[in-house]
């Protein structure tokens, strides 16, 4: 009894000491300040981002003067007019949005069982394997992975070599929209799994058992219990994958063969290829607006309480 008591008392004495130290360092009246102090770096970053966005918005209202290759001083809506008038921007935007939707849907479809298996497997070795398999691609950057796919899926790549060896002829596996979508799904999968994991881990196994015991087969259990309870995770993962895909540059650029640009490529081209910062800025603003609108739409469909940002409500 005596020895059992002395250990916690030492521990508590340590805690008391730390608290006393904290009290001395930070007077109680100033406690509120420390909270803000910790927030400061994040606020600073967001602030800088906001300033940058402000510049971009400003640029977007000036047209390019070809004679001097500077933006004209006069304000105008010309860049936005160009975006609306030229069907190419509509097409590129549509291609990006469709791509983002496809990638989001397919990625979630594959990520869900993966994350589910990770939270439910009883074998530690299996969990470790799933974890490593998930994280390994993280160490390989997007560009390297895209080039990897070029090597594997190219005309003289492993797949086509095998097909040719079987006398089946070769397939066009890269430099098309499908290749871009495929590359993006492969890239987004770990993000989606990581974002789904906590949501699925928060679903007690008991609840699934209860559903089963109450007469639901696994399909019904999945539909009526697991899926609704995983909704916060699905929405979170969906938003992340959607926005990352919508604004992706490397995959369409490398796997698309030059004719399946996403919006980011169009922005790059405006800024760098034709040195038209005004048009590029207008495109950027449009992308931010449309992306935000879609995220807002997600939230409104899913209900604002989805992410349970306020914590447990009593």
């Amino acid at each position: 009894m005596a020895s059992a008591q002395s250990a916690p008392s030492l521990f508590w004495r340590l805690i008391d000491g730390l608290e006393a130290l904290l009290r001395r360092l930070v007077p109680p009246k100033r406690r509120g300040v420390t909270g803000w102090l910790f927030l400061a770096p994040a606020l600073l970053l967001v602030g800088i981002l906001a300033v940058g966005l402000g510049y971009i918005i400003e640029y977007s209202f000036h047209e390019l003067d070809i004679a001097t290759y500077r933006l004209k001083d006069a304000y105008s809506l010309g860049n936005y007019q160009t975006l609306i008038e030229r069907p190419v921007y509509r097409n590129v935007l549509w291609r990006s949005l469709l791509g983002a939707a496809l990638v989001t849907a397919i990625t979630l479809f594959f990520a869900f069982p993966y994350a589910y298996a990770m939270t439910r497997t009883r074998s530690a070795a299996m969990r470790k394997f799933l974890l490593i398999a998930l994280f390994l691609p993280f160490f390989i950057g997007q560009v390297v992975r895209a080039y990897g796919w070029l090597i594997i899926l190219g005309k003289q790549g492993v797949i086509n070599a095998m097909l040719a060896g079987l006398g089946l002829g070769t397939l066009d596996l890269i430099y098309n929209y499908g290749a871009v979508i495929f590359g993006l799904i492969q890239y987004m999968l770990p993000f989606a799994v990581l974002l789904l994991l906590p949501a699925l881990a928060a679903i007690p196994e008991d609840v699934e058992m209860a559903s089963e015991g109450l007469g639901a087969n696994w399909v019904s259990t999945f539909r009526h219990v697991v899926l609704p309870m995983a909704k916060p995770g699905l929405i979170g993962a969906g938003i992340v994958v959607f926005t990352l895909t919508l604004t992706d540059f490397a995959m369409p650029e490398i796997l698309g063969g030059g004719t399946t640009d996403f919006v980011a490529s169009a922005i790059y081209d405006s800024f760098f290829q034709i040195s038209n910062a005004g048009l590029g800025a207008a495109l950027s603003v449009a992308l931010v607006l449309i992306g935000s609108a879609f995220v807002a739409l997600f939230f409104s469909i899913a209900g604002s309480t989805t992410l349970d940002i306020g914590g447990e409500k009593k």
Partner: peptide, 20 residues
């Protein structure tokens, strides 16, 4: 006979109510 085909009602230790 799988669980969902048995005619058994169960109350769990942590209740396992459906929160949604």
């Amino acid at each position: 006979v799988p669980a969902h085909r048995r005619s058994i009602g169960m109350v769990f230790q942590k209740l396992a109510l459906f929160p949604h």
